[in-house]
Design a protein around this nucleic acid. Structure first.
Lengths: 221, 221, 221, 221
DNA sequence: AATGAATGAGCCTTCATTCAT
DNA sequence: GATGAATGAAGGCTCATTCAT
């Protein structure tokens, strides 16, 4: 297919829509602004996508398509389960969280959908999120073979929750501890921290910090 | 005007606004609908609050006011640091997370603001979030006296991130593991799980699960 | 009458209304802003004056009351008709036109009413404008005894038109010839100019300027 | 859409806007009413013109376009300076003043802008008013070659002021001297009167009237 | 394939006014 | 004598959408 401009109008609309939706949210985004951005008529969205809602849905699917192709395939499964978990955390942080500075709207959009679901969430979960989640479950299952599903799920959420928190609550975190302190929490450090935190919790590594007392009576399990 | 209803028009507006904003977000919420809900004229919001933005801000402050007065004061500081942390997690989960099913809009609204900040975030952080955060930092500092600030912050975020994840990503989680499985993750279980996870990571309790690369010992999983 | 504040609320409202109406015009003026200015409730106008229209009317009458008391009484009628006319022009310019820099709203308001009449114009003309106009007619009649009424009226309008032009078209004039040039047209100069212009036209003074040719054939009368 | 009416929707909107603005002023005019007048949707103005302010500005420019194209070009510059001035006054009166009774809104709108300027005044002065003003200055300069700029400006304003007065203060004038007397001041008479008044002042014609302090001579009043 | 014109619904806001106190 | 509360109407404007071309 020959493209006259940089790309086809439809795909440029999709790109602009992704940025706009990611930046302002579904309601505050305006299809006229999106069309203006790519120099198209304000009826272009309805012509190409049928409606604002359909445009949003396709932008979301595009986000998942572009956001998931960066996953390293078999590379993740090398080494011990502990190494696999550390690697998973590193890549999750890198891709989903640390991407904030890049102007890729893909993860931002998916995150928005997670927090404020629409009908598109079902598809998103099925096609983009579950595969990664299953991979994490696999790693955890190998790391802790004797654990039941309930615990397994909780473990997975503990891993993911720690990572995502830097994305969902980034602005709050920044204000809580100050700009400089927050910037010092770079990918390198956080990756090690969360890996260490989780592995220690699973008994796959020594405790993260030297605590002043370690007696089993501290915790009523 | 005789106050026939339970409260004044202004406070009823605030309540309705909180629900509407929490449910639909700032942009999608309409002040006309809010006024309709309480049987007031559509100009009532502008009369009592000046603008939609001011109304939002006041609803947010109200949310923080109602959401933070339930904090148990000195009760949190009893026992060992490990016990304090466990108690903190329990209350945090209970207040912030488990309230999702109740129709209190307060925490939903605050969460929205955290994720998609407006100018109101500054105030919210200062008055509602930082006090709790400092309390957590205190507990962690007592639990790990030899830790520097960077690690301390990361630890705090690990604790909070695990808890908040059930709120921010609740709908995704539910779809990932199924309705029933997600419901089984009740307050009781999650509270113990996260406490155990964190205390083990800090070396204040044995590892959460019996891992295959570690000598099976004393942990009741 | 004892006044608690500077003056009574009603009179302060009138003063504020005069300023607001003069500055913005009837439609753009807002009774709420007027009430705010004097620290009164927004219902105060309706309480004291009945309606916005009534307030405007009373402000207009107040304007005429204050604007006409500055007329020098018998002083104007001394000397020859030519001297009287010059004196009339001087005072007219001084009071009605040159007052722009002072913050007296009175003449501005009356001017507005002249240009965009409401029902109040009738009263204004009868009580404020006609007396002055009749005085001018008297002067002109004494200056030109053999003139019929039609010509007399046209003469009067020629005098007034020249003066008022600096008020009605002030902003245009300023832009036409530049800020500095317009400022150089001060009261002193304009008063002499218009007087000279009119007296020359009436044959009561030599022509204003030395023209290059004076032959009666120039004008087809 | 098939253009069933004589012109396009946009130009019909402009026409209606001109009438509405001229009649009621900027503030009191409503774009809804303007749209209703031409049978268009209330969003039509914003679609075609962007905003009420822009519509006003374009109406003003249209007014100037229609109001200035009637100027006779070289015809004005024939004959002596005195004849030129008389001809200028005649056309100025005819175009600007005598049109009041016709329902052309163009000059009314421009006058409104002169008296109560907005940001559009700058453009209006530059494109519509200054050219005419310069033409008048040219005539006066030729008539009075030895006059400095300050006097020249004052002379021009004296000419214009006398003419415009019948427009700006028309309603007041009518009430001052009565309906019949005012109607007798027709274009023919006023044109001669003002020409004679000005030319006499400039020494280009004998005084307008036979004054009692001047030797009765040759003037046919 | 794509667009310019136009629309109807809804937005937030401001208005002058009313009324019970 | 004066005001706070509340209202209905209208304001200008933006929206997503439609339709003939």
């Amino acid at each position: 297919m020959v493209v006259t401009e940089a790309t086809t109008t439809k795909s440029r609309l999709l790109e602009a829509a992704g940025q706009e939706f990611a930046q302002k949210g579904y309601d505050a985004a305006s299809i006229r602004k999106i069309c203006d951005r790519v120099g198209a008529n304000c009826a272009a969205v309805n012509y190409h996508f049928g409606s604002k809602e359909q445009l949003y849905l396709e932008a979301l699917l595009e986000a998942h398509r572009c956001g998931t192709q960066v996953i390293p395939e078999e590379f993740l499964l090398q080494g011990t389960p502990a190494e696999q978990l550390a690697r998973f955390i590193h890549h999750f942080l890198k891709n989903v969280v640390a991407l904030a500075q890049k102007n890729t709207w893909h993860h931002t959009l998916m995150l928005r959908e997670m927090i404020q679901p629409t009908v598109a969430l079902e598809t998103l979960v099925r096609e983009a999120i579950r595969p990664k989640f299953e991979r994490l479950l696999g790693i955890l299952r190998r790391a802790c073979p004797d654990v039941d599903d309930r615990r397994l799920h909780a473990l997975a959420f503990s891993v993911i929750g720690q990572c995502l928190h830097y994305r969902t609550a980034g602005e709050v975190n920044r204000r809580l501890i100050g700009e400089d302190a927050y910037e010092s929490l770079d990918l390198e450090f956080l990756s090690h921290h969360i890996s260490g935190f989780c592995l220690a919790a699973l008994g796959l590594a020594p405790p993260l910090v030297q605590s002043h007392t370690v007696s089993s009576s501290d915790v009523k399990a």
